[in-house]
């Protein structure tokens, strides 16, 4: 026990100082989907393939509902030309509607 305590004091601070400092997740981290619709032909495969039904084609472009998104990355696998999983995780909002993000058509 004494040995363990001595070692634990030797570790120093292991606390990640978020939010006092910005946090950069590891390179592989799957954050929220990002879309660039330049050249998108609105085939709709991304929306059809989303397991949570979070993507839908709207007049303005492509709507992503972060409130139902399960961050699985299927959309990026279905359409790597236009969709990639980003690194953003600070996604909390006060209103439900704020979670609906629209990517403007290209």
């Amino acid at each position: 026990m004494r040995k363990l305590l001595r070692r634990m004091f030797g570790y120093g601070s292991r606390t990640v100082p978020y939010p006092t400092e910005a946090f950069t997740p590891p390179a592989a981290f799957i954050g929220r989907p990002e879309a660039d619709l330049d050249g998108c032909d609105r085939c709709g495969r991304c929306a059809a393939g989303c397991p949570a039904g979070s993507l839908s084609l709207v007049d303005e472009g492509l709507q992503l509902d972060l409130g139902s998104c399960i961050f699985c990355g299927e959309c990026a696998r279905i359409c790597p030309e236009h969709i990639a999983m980003g690194k953003d995780f600070e996604l909390a909002a006060r209103g439900r509607e704020e979670l609906k993000v629209v990517f403007a058509r290209g």
Binding site: M1, L4, M8, P25, P26, A28, F29, I30
Partner: peptide
């Protein structure tokens, strides 16, 4: 004391999971 250490060890594995797979 070992409980706290154990949970930090678990956190290290979760971190390793993420480095390996993104999740």
């Amino acid at each position: 004391v070992p409980a706290a250490d154990g949970y930090v060890l678990r956190e290290s594995v979760l971190d390793l999971n993420e480095r390996l797979t993104g999740s």
